[in-house]
Structures are given as structure tokens and as C-alpha cells.
Design a protein around this nucleic acid. Structure first.
Lengths: 340, 340
DNA sequence: AGCAAATTTGCATTCGAATGCAAATCTTAT
DNA sequence: ATAAGATTTGCATTCGAATGCAAATTTGCT
């Protein structure tokens, strides 16, 4: 009989109150940290709660408090190993802070609209976007007073809450490293033009090459994915002046380039050509690649994103902030002396 | 003035009702598919809703309907490329079905308990577990009438809703393939013992080898991760009888083994040793690996999981079901003739 | 037009927890 | 023991949408 009651439908704060012989408000208070409850009361209530397997209903709580404790995370579903690493980091850290992650994978533009609607419907307390977001979409969220933290992107002409990885110093080190190996002829594999991460990385690479000497003898564009690097690498290597070092806008393409060179074109890396990437994803450390790259401190970036989000949620009117962490140069074995 | 009203606080169904000059119930009905509303009414309401930027509050709706439209997905956060692929597939498909994904990453046993509590608090409509779940935890969810679908695991002695990938046929083909290449001496790199996927894969491998001839001359155990394969591979290759083919319990370890052989031990693959794995993850197709493997039809498995979940949610008392899809043998270039 | 049947609409209540305020209880000091 | 103050408790209301039921309206038919 009792078992039935227990399992037939879930216990509410009223059930607990009745069993403990107190009011519903008392039960509510016992589950609210920092509320004023006497020791005796707390014991009675907790005993009853345990007996009935009671846990406060987050939905009802969300309705009255207007805090869902849900954070929407938008990630691109493109099979780039960078996103899963970021996602898992964010999720772990949000959990620790008592926030749940509502996941939205973005395949195409239209998915963003949809995600934003859901965010609104579910009263998500905030949005972390590690995916493309237009100014209009960003503004829409702002208008609705939903804190947004952009992960690895921001708007140049608009204040935004963002986490960014500065690679300027590391890029200089990387180019220095290549120059020290005697490289003068560089080939670039760019990422998609809409990606500001790509634009910024390429800008810094060009700038560093200009400062430290050397020429960009060939360029090609990929889409950040492994597969896209094959054609780009072909293009570079068919250039009238062949590059001795290939700089890819991310590790996935660097891996694709390296594979194309070694396994398809029969070149040795770094013997014939050196290859570098950006991101420092886990797979870049695999022995077949051991990429020289610039690592983003993903853990610290995620931590910063989570902290920033918590701040915005607590104090919504805090002014916008851009937190910039620095990437670091990682020397692998995909770079070596230029052959003459 | 109007703008302020709009942005100061979100519009509710009452606001829409007032503006449209109808009752709140009418507004509610307009947003419920299949409700009885006249055309005129719908137009009036929709116009007002658009004007006020109204979207029904999913939290309030969830409270009264007792359906949150949230599905909890539990995935191991271990950096195995298999999980992200599964996760993104599931999320995409749930979104299409109007269900949101509440993501829980599981690092350690204790995280599961926590996730289950959150599931209960958020009234998740169901749980997909692609992570370890004890019988007790499973039972707890059952008792609470929360549908659970196990992804790639089930309990032998307990009926469960599960999606499973049968690799028996493909394993036979794989061993046949190796036997045809003249391999007789096999080395196994097992996954963790608690993993039933591992146990089953290894059981079928042993069975196939027994049936088709050949010997298992060495065994070692890894933890499914890339890094763990290095030591395991060393162990196998130091065995008194050296294996000519290495069978790893998943692709990540196969990749680790292949790298250890080629890049650390200086062996050629498949020249000196052949290597095979399981899963058919994207990275296994990279040119540096091109693993011979057994692919799980992840897309179809995710689809099946989502369908099963929908069924359980609609009709909770539907009897348990185990849906089994078959894996397929994929021939890569990591296998070749045995050298004598 | 007139009446029955079918459809549409509104009223009032409900879901479960949180909280401002007043009432009740407990402390403490004299 | 008593008054003043501090703490604890309960009452009643609130959040926003859904829904059973009855009232109002529309439709169809003669």
C-alpha cells in the first residue's frame, strides 16, 4: 500500500508536509539553502522527504522563481574534434555550479533561429554560443534579457560577453620557429571566410610573416574539416613556387594536409614539408601527427565562460566583458628544417 | 512605451489574450496543435502573439501537462571519439521530434547518481544512457516510471529497453578476412572488463577464431583510450609467440596500437603486423590509419533510440524491447598478408 | 424561419514550489 | 515571571499555461 503510494505518483512538498505534520512552506524552506528553519523542523522534514523519496520539482520551482537553472549551449555539429572537447568541458563545469545544460547542435543557419526560440520557451537562464550567431540574433537575445556568452567569437563593433583566445604572441613564436628552421616559403590553408577565428588567425600569420621575413607563395581554402584539406594541399603543392611549410587554420585541416602529403603524395613530413595547425586538439597529439600547433587553453576558457555566465545571471546588468586568454605554442614533430 | 512593455518582461498568454480581446484559454488553444479553434480566432490571436513576441512558456506548460519535453542524455566524457558522434546524432534527431536534450557528462560513478537526481527534479520525460548504469540505478528510474533506453548496453537478466549492435556476423567476416591473409597468430587488446560491449566483442572474436582456426597468442588490456594502447601493444609484441594480427576492442585503441607499431616500434602496418578495431568512428578513416574495422551504424542506432524513446513516452507501459542492428565489416588498409 | 446538433469560447481550477507578511514560538535579560 | 526582541512557522497568494465543463455561437437541415 505504502509502496504503491510511493510509486504511483511522485511526492510533492504537500505530501512531505502532511507526513511531517508541518506546512508546505516549511518544506519549501528546508530545501532552500540559507532559509530560516529550526533544527527540529529540518530533521522532521528531511526524514519525511527521504521516506517519500521527495526531490523538489525543478519545473515548478522555475515557474515561480523565474530561474530555470538551464543554460543553453549551442555548438556546431560539424565533425570537428574541437567542439566536443569544448562542450564536455562546459558541461562538466556548469554541472558543478548547479546549472544544467540544454544542448543544441547547429547544422545550418536555420537551426539557430530554432534554438533561440527554444531558449525563450524554456526560459534558459543564459546562452553559450560556440556556433555562428548573427548580430540580429544576438540582439534579440539581449532584448529579451538573456545573457549571452560567445565562445571564441565576438562582434567587432558591438559590446558582447565573450571568451576569446589571443594567439598573437604564439603565432609570432610559431613563425619564428619556422624561420629558424629556414622556412621562407609558406602555404596557407584557410578556414571558411565567415569564421572570425579563421580571419584572425590568418591575419596574425600574415603579419608575423611580414615582420619576420618570408613569403606566402600559395593559398587555398578549406572548411575546417579533415576532408577539405586534401584538395587544398594539392593546390598548394601545385603552385609555381612550392611552399616548404604549410600553415593550416586548424588542427583538423593540418592533419588532413599531413596525411595528404605523406600518404597520398608520398612526401615526408617534416622532411619535405613542415605542417602546423591551430587548436591543440587531443588528436593532434597522436603519434601519426604530433602536430606543431598553437593550443587554446580550452579548460580555462570553459572555466572563464562559466564564471562569466554565472556573473551575468546573478547581476544581469553587469556591463559587457571580453575575456581574453592566450594560446601557447606547442612544438611537435610535424616541423623541421627546410630543405633547399 | 509599448517597446518598454515588450522588453521589460515577457508576454504571457494573458497579455496576448487582452490584446486580442479573447480569453486566456483561447490563446492556449491556439498554441496547442489539434485544438478546436475557429479561423478568425486563430488569426486574431496569432497577430497579437506576433506583436508581443509571445512564445508559450515551456516551464509553465510542463508543470500542468507533466511533460517537460526534456530527454536526459548520459554520456561518458572520456575522450573517445565515439561518444560525441553518438551524442550529436541523438541531439539532432530529438530536436526534430520536438524534444530537448539535457546533457549529462559522466566522469565517475558518482556523477550518475547526480544525473539521476537531476532527471527526477527536472521531470525529464526519459533517459538515454550511453554510459554505465547499475542495475539499482536502472531500477530506480523504472520505479519512478521514467523510460530508460540503454544505448549499447543492456542487462542480461533483466528486460530493458535497449539499442544494441550485433557484430557476430561482421566479426566472422573480419576473422575470415584475416585468415585469408594467412594470419594464425592473434593478439588481443581488450577494453575494460566492466564494459559489456568489450566482453561481447571479445567473446565473438574468440569464438570466430576458434571456429575458423588460429590462436590467440597474447592478450593485454587497455581502457578504450588511445593512450592506453601503447603499453598494451608493447606487451603483445614482447610475447614469446608474436602475433601477426592485433585485434583491438575499439578503434581508438587500434589507432593507438597502429601508431605505437609504426611510429615507436618501427614496424610496418600491415607489412609486419595487421591491426583491426571496432566502431567505425570518423577518425578511423583518416589516411594515417584507414583501419579495417567493424562499423556500428550510429545514425540508424540513434534513430532507433529516438523512436523507442518516443514510443515509451507516449505509451509508458509498452513492454520492454531490445532493438538490435548489425555492424558491418569495413576493409581498410591496416590489414594485409601475414609475413612468415 | 426554427430547431437540433456541432463547434467554439470562456470560466474556473489545477499543476508544485516560493515568498511577503502576520502570527506564533522561543530567547534573553531584568 | 515578564516584557522586549529575535527567530520560526503558517497562511495565502503567485508564477503561466492547460483543460473539463458549461455557456455561447455557428452550422446544417427541414
Amino acid at each position: 500500500m505504502e509502496d504503491q503510494t510511493k510509486s504511483r505518483s511522485r511526492a510533492t512538498s504537500y505530501d512531505v508536509a502532511r507526513l511531517a505534520g508541518v506546512s508546505q512552506s516549511a518544506v519549501s524552506r528546508c530545501f532552500k539553502p540559507g532559509a530560516s528553519v529550526s533544527k527540529k523542523m529540518r530533521e522532521k522534514v528531511m526524514a519525511a522527504a527521504t521516506e517519500l523519496n521527495y526531490q523538489p520539482n525543478a519545473i515548478a520551482r522555475g515557474l515561480i522563481t523565474r530561474r530555470s537553472n538551464l543554460v543553453a549551449v549551442l555548438v556546431s555539429s560539424q565533425m570537428n574534434f574541437y567542439y566536443p572537447e569544448v562542450l564536455f568541458q562546459l558541461t562538466d563545469r556548469f554541472s558543478q555550479q548547479g546549472l544544467r545544460v540544454l544542448l543544441f547542435t547547429i547544422n545550418e543557419e536555420a537551426d539557430v533561429e530554432d534554438a533561440i526560440n527554444q531558449v525563450w520557451q524554456y526560459q534558459a537562464d543564459g546562452v553559450i554560443s560556440a556556433s555562428y550567431l548573427s548580430i540580429e540574433q544576438h540582439t534579440l537575445l539581449q532584448d529579451r534579457h538573456i545573457p549571452v556568452v560567445m565562445f571564441n567569437r565576438y562582434f567587432a563593433d558591438l559590446p558582447t560577453n565573450s571568451i576569446w583566445c589571443d594567439t598573437e604572441g604564439a603565432t609570432d613564436v610559431m613563425i619564428r620557429h619556422l624561420r629558424d628552421f629556414g622556412h621562407k616559403k609558406f602555404g596557407l590553408i584557410e578556414g571558411p571566410d565567415y569564421s572570425m577565428v579563421n580571419r584572425e588567425r590568418m591575419r596574425l600569420v600574415r603579419q608575423a610573416i611580414k615582420m619576420q621575413g618570408g613569403n606566402i607563395v600559395a593559398e587555398a581554402r578549406g572548411n575546417y574539416r579533415y576532408e577539405s584539406a586534401a584538395a587544398a594541399t594539392q593546390t598548394l603543392m601545385e603552385s609555381s613556387v612550392r611552399p616548404s611549410a604549410i600553415i593550416a587554420a586548424n588542427d583538423m585541416m593540418a592533419m588532413g594536409a599531413l596525411d595528404e602529403l605523406k600518404n597520398v603524395m608520398g612526401r615526408s613530413v617534416p622532411g619535405d614539408v613542415s605542417v602546423v595547425g591551430f587548436d591543440g586538439i587531443g588528436a593532434a597529439r597522436f603519434a601519426s601527427y604530433e602536430l606543431t600547433t598553437i593550443r587554446q587553453p580550452i579548460g580555462r576558457m570553459a572555466e572563464a565562460a562559466v564564471n562569466m555566465m554565472l556573473t551575468r545571471i546573478e547581476k544581469p546588468e553587469t556591463s559587457m566583458e571580453k575575456r581574453v586568454l592566450t594560446g601557447s605554442f606547442i612544438q611537435g614533430t610535424s616541423t623541421g628544417p627546410a630543405t633547399t
